[in-house]
Each structure stands twice: as structure tokens, then as C-alpha cells.
């Protein structure tokens, strides 16, 4: 139901009623911020990227057809914004978290030296950061309430089934990183 009004609102924005973007922003800012924060763990940067998403939505509003869901269209834009940020700043998106888990694990020692107790959450937090971005991304998306796998497929450009398999494998990888971190 809300998706329907999302689309209607975006079509209004498209037709020139720019004020309606404010409503869409209020509805989606938290999720978008969460998405970016989970990807880069930098609150200030995430706020900037949320802003970039809406700037881009305005710029490319003519490409919104209203056929698919607005949320999927918006998150596709968000992914592009994220990807462009990494590319512009010459940070390798796919290798942002040094490719091998082992290497990272050595590094994590220094990070966690000061920590008295490795509770599950901070370990999981850490494991999430080590997980390659594309896997982290699908887990973050599938954790959003009201986000269906059909939409995730739309965002990632794959089928619903493939999105589920990808999510499953990402979860499995997260689990194994988590175990490795915990047993250290």
C-alpha cells in the first residue's frame, strides 16, 4: 500500500511537484542512512551520501517510470551513489576490507587489544565489516523490514531466487567469520 503511494509521490515529483520529495525523504531517510552506515560505518559520510541519493533522484527523475517499486529504484540509486563514492575516492569497493579474512584477523588484534570482553555483538559488528561489501549489502537489504526479496532482486538486477541464494551464502560467510573471530 505504501509502495503505491511512494510511486504516486515520485510520479508527482517527476511531473514537477518537487515539494513531494520532502515526504519521500521523511519516509526513507532512516533506511537509507542505515544502509550507508552499515556499508561504511561513518555517520557523517552516510548523511552526505543520503543527500546525494536525493540529489540524484531529482536529477534523474525523468527516468522513473513507475513500473517497478520506488524503493527498489531508490536503493539502486543508493548503490550507485555508494559505488561512485568509492570509485571517486579511489577506494577499491570490492577490496575495501582487505581481501583475505586471515589478514584482517591479524589486524583485528590491534583493534581489539583494548577491549576487555569480546561480546557477541561487537564481534558480529566486526565480522560484518570484514564481510565483502556485496555480501554485506545483501544482508543489510534483506534485514530491512518490509523489504521483500523480489525487491532486492530488482535492486541487484537478479531474480528473486538468486537474491535468496546470495543472501543465504552471505549469511553463511558471516557466520564463519564470526566463528573465527570468536575462537581467537
Amino acid at each position: 500500500m505504501q509502495e503505491l503511494t511512494n510511486n504516486a509521490l515520485m510520479l508527482k515529483v517527476k511531473s514537477g511537484d518537487l515539494d513531494k520529495l520532502g515526504l519521500l525523504y521523511e519516509r526513507h531517510k532512516k533506511r537509507l542512512f542505515g544502509f550507508f552506515y552499515n556499508m561504511n560505518s561513518d555517520a557523517s559520510l552516510s548523511e552526505d551520501l543520503v543527500q546525494n541519493v536525493f540529489v540524484r533522484i531529482l536529477k534523474y527523475k525523468h527516468t522513473f517510470t513507475g513500473d517497478g517499486s520506488f524503493t527498489a529504484w531508490m536503493f539502486r540509486t543508493a548503490r550507485n551513489v555508494n559505488y561512485d563514492y568509492y570509485r571517486k575516492n579511489k577506494i577499491a569497493f570490492n577490496k575495501s576490507e582487505i581481501s583475505t579474512v586471515e589478514y584482517k584477523l591479524e589486524d583485528s588484534d590491534t583493534v581489539e587489544k583494548g577491549m576487555q570482553r569480546k561480546d557477541d555483538i561487537s564481534v558480529l559488528n566486526h565480522a560484518m565489516k570484514i564481510l565483502p561489501p556485496e555480501k554485506r549489502e545483501i544482508l543489510v537489504l534483506s534485514k530491512f523490514k518490509e523489504m521483500k526479496f523480489s525487491e532486492i532482486g530488482e535492486i541487484l538486477g537478479c531474480t528473486e531466487g538468486t537474491a535468496k541464494v546470495k543472501a543465504h551464502r552471505a549469511l553463511k560467510d558471516l557466520r564463519s567469520i564470526f566463528l573465527k573471530l570468536e575462537t581467537r
Binding site: L18, D19, L21, G22, Y25, K29, K30, F33, G34, Y37, N38, A43, S46, E47, V50, Q51, F54, V55, D120, I121, L124, N125, M128, L139, K143, L171, K172, L174, R175, F178
Partner: peptide, 29 residues
């Protein structure tokens, strides 16, 4: 094992975006 990890993801804390984000968005709009 998978189920517990899945549930734990929820507990990863995400801060609340600051008012600055709202201000800069509405300025832009």
C-alpha cells in the same frame, strides 16, 4: 547457527542521523 547469526545482525547498532542531514536536504530541495 545460521538463525542465531541472522538474529544478531538486528542488534548491530546504527546511530540516528543528525538534524544536519534534514537541514541540508531541505535546503537543497
Amino acid at each position: 547457527a545460521m538463525n542465531s547469526t541472522w538474529k544478531q545482525i538486528d542488534r548491530v547498532e546504527v546511530p540516528v542521523p543528525s538534524e544536519k542531514m534534514d537541514i541540508s536536504f531541505f535546503n537543497m530541495l
